[in-house]
């Protein structure tokens, strides 16, 4: 591009680089603190003040204690169930609706589109929703309450639909001439052409379901159905580890409770690690598609 770089420009670039190094540190350090603390000696962690930037007295003790907590293990399995069911169901209805609404020759297409987008702008509010789901639809303390009401997102549907509108129209028409039905066209012609968008939307759904706790906290009472985040909320935010964990963990080991008191801080860090790792393992694979997905989704005009 340009050979000559002016002094103000150079100064700007140095400052800009420094700003972003600061941003990177600000994003990473809190997470690094958690990583280091989770592997460190409990006594040292408790006495430490400020950020923990290195591992001291490497140990897996905290993690061992985490996996002895029955609530946490059940929560993990429950979350897997909720995420897989809700995402599969959600994706299915999302791509079908998006495909139907991407078609231009449908008489009620616009009306249905308005019907869907209106729900993004106006809603009955938390209480009406709660009363309808629990008392109207009798889903209180049911696993369905964490799947059906939340499995569809209008925002995600718009992302998929916009990507479909971007595909050449002749594609669908020629398939139709060949005698393919609508479902066939959607699943074996249209979807394979938009893997990037689909991957992004799957990630949005998975993350939303994996991280959700509020629905569970208002709809569920039975601890056996609790998703991971709700168990986490009890441990990290509401109560402390010792009461939650001794209440449910194996009682036969008497040394455990002693360890728990010492390790209650470390255990929190281990729990954060264990609960967040699956998302971080998944996210880098999809990250490169974000820009395309977000752009077409958010700007409709």
């Amino acid at each position: 591009m340009r050979k000559h770089v002016s002094f103000p420009r150079l100064l700007f670039e140095i400052i800009n680089t420094l700003i972003f190094i600061a941003v990177i540190l600000a994003c990473i350090l809190p997470v690094w603190h958690v990583v280091c603390a989770s592997f460190s000696d409990a006594g040292w962690v408790i006495g430490h003040s400020g950020l923990i930037l290195r591992i001291k007295g490497f140990t897996f003790k905290g993690y061992q204690l985490v996996f002895q907590n029955k609530d946490l293990v059940t929560g993990y399995l429950n979350t897997f169930f909720y995420v897989i069911t809700a995402t599969t169901l959600g994706m299915l209805v999302t791509v079908m609706a998006a495909y139907a609404l991407s078609r231009k020759d449908v008489l009620f297409g616009n009306s249905i589109m308005f019907f869907i987008t209106f729900t993004m702008m106006f809603n009955g509010g938390m209480i009406a929703y709660y009363v309808i789901v629990t008392q109207g639809l009798h889903m209180f303390d049911s696993r369905w309450a964490l799947i059906l009401p939340v499995c569809f997102s209008a925002y995600n549907m718009i992302i998929v639909r916009t990507a479909m509108i971007g595909l050449p129209e002749s594609l669908v028409e020629s398939a139709k001439l060949d005698g393919a039905g609508e479902f066939r066209i959607l699943f074996s012609i249209v979807l394979p052409l938009m893997k990037a968008t689909i991957a992004t939307v799957i990630l949005y759904y998975v993350v939303a379901h994996w991280n959700s706790w509020f629905q569970a906290s208002i709809f569920l009472r039975d601890r056996a159905k609790f998703p991971l985040q709700l168990v986490l909320k009890e441990i990290l935010v509401t109560g402390d580890v010792s009461t939650t964990m001794t209440g449910t963990a194996n009682v036969n080991t008497s040394s455990l409770s002693g360890d728990l008191i010492l390790y209650r801080q470390t255990v929190k860090y281990c729990i954060i690690m264990v609960s967040t790792l699956p998302i971080f393992a998944f996210y880098p694979f999809v990250q490169k598609h974000f820009e395309a997905g977000v752009m077409i989704g958010a700007i409709k005009g």
């Binding site: 299915l92 209805v93 999302t94 079908m96 609706a97 495909y99 139907a100 609404l101 078609r103 020759d105 449908v106 008489l107 009620f108 249905i112 019907f115 869907i116 729900t119 106006f122 809603n123 009955g124 509010g125 209480i127 009406a128 929703y129 009363v131 309808i132 789901v133 109207g136 639809l137 059906l148 009401p149 499995c151 569809f152 549907m157 039905g181 609508e182 479902f183 959607l186």
Partner: peptide, 28 residues
């Protein structure tokens, strides 16, 4: 286009149940 309408039907049902019904719940 009946197949097309069939395809949006699940979403319409979900929204009626979990978005529009709660709106009517505002009579509370």
């Amino acid at each position: 286009n009946w197949t097309i309408y069939l395809m949006v039907l699940p979403v319409i049902i979900l929204l009626i149940l979990f978005a529009y019904l709660p709106m009517s719940g505002l009579v509370m």
